[in-house]
């Protein structure tokens, strides 16, 4: 067996740990395994990925997995923003944390869906899906049996230094996810891999300022739609709003603008949903919609 899995999620969801759960479970099941995370300097909520390679021979390959056999997506909103399916091989499997089947428009890919977030919120009280995603991946791809998966979750949660009751809760989450997701038959072909190649080019010399690392497009970060980070949305009740400017002042991301009448408007393309405005609004004129 040779299995390359790429996991995608958002910072804070536990994608690195999910990858480790899969790696450890595979190791316990007797395979060679390698797992590694990748993240940029971005913060909580940003795209994080993790890679697991499993093989019955010593693992070859390192780093980014460009052509995975399986992809796990812990936050389905990433489908629109991060191209998590890129390179997924024909006959491969995608495991999605979602309430229902997601239309991907790729007939050659099999899909396993499980609402891990709802389970995590129920059991752990927050969207910490690492144990659930790890267990779901192991089951869906037939990597390891239940006992190995539970042991892997226990080991990884202990490694994180979680309290006993949280470890237990994560094991419970893993058990429920393991039970709920079906095992799919991978139909990827190892030979495909050998055929993949890209053209190698030589970078030309470019004149200054193109050769200098600088940005001369002030404020262009608006192109980054951080609104997708949001899981709760502040909504202004204009009947109650007193135009006091408090929300405008405290919004860390300049996502609240004022018009001439000092009426605030929220930029939902960028609002990260921190809800400081909701908390600080003196007349409580901001509500939260989930």
């Amino acid at each position: 067996m040779k299995l390359n899995i790429r996991l995608h999620g958002r910072g804070g969801q536990g994608i690195k740990t999910a990858g480790r759960v899969v790696g450890t479970a595979a190791f316990l099941a007797g395979y060679y395994a390698q797992d590694s995370p990748m993240y940029g300097p971005e913060r909580r909520g940003a795209h994080v990925s993790s890679f697991v390679r499993i093989s019955d021979e010593p693992v070859d390959g390192r780093g980014y997995i460009a052509a995975p056999d399986a992809v796990a997506i812990a936050d389905h909103s990433l489908l629109e923003q991060a191209s998590p399916l890129q390179g997924l091989r024909s006959g491969g499997v995608v495991i999605i944390n979602a309430a229902k089947h997601v239309e991907l428009g790729i007939p050659t890919i099999q899909q396993a869906v499980l609402d891990i977030s709802t389970l995590a919120n129920k059991i752990l009280g927050r969207d910490a899906v690492s144990a659930g995603v790890g267990a779901a991946v192991c089951k869906a791809l037939g990597i390891a049996g239940r006992a190995d998966v539970i042991e892997a979750v226990k080991m990884e949660m202990e490694e994180l230094g979680l309290r006993e009751e949280l470890i237990e809760a994560n094991i419970k989450l893993a058990e429920e996810c393991y039970a709920a997701i079906p095992t799919l038959q991978l139909k990827t072909n190892e030979e495909d891999m050998l055929m993949e190649r890209d053209e190698i080019v030589e970078i030309p010399a470019t004149p200054a300022p193109a050769s200098v690392a600088l940005i001369s497009a002030a404020g262009n970060s608006t192109a980054r739609k951080t609104g997708a980070w949001r899981d709760a949305t502040p909504v202004i009740n204009y009947q109650k709003c007193t135009r006091c400017m408090v929300c405008y002042i405290y919004c860390p991301d300049s996502c609240i603008s004022l018009d001439e009448t000092l009426t605030p408007h929220i930029d939902y393309e960028h609002c990260k949903g921190c809800l400081i405005c909701f908390m600080e609004c003196p007349p409580r004129a901001i509500q939260v919609e989930v």
Partner: peptide, 15 residues
């Protein structure tokens, strides 16, 4: 300061 920074939601430093 433009929206769309990669900083955490609710960053005090950004304010």
């Amino acid at each position: 300061l433009s929206p769309g920074s990669p900083l955490c939601a609710g960053c005090g430093g950004e304010i």
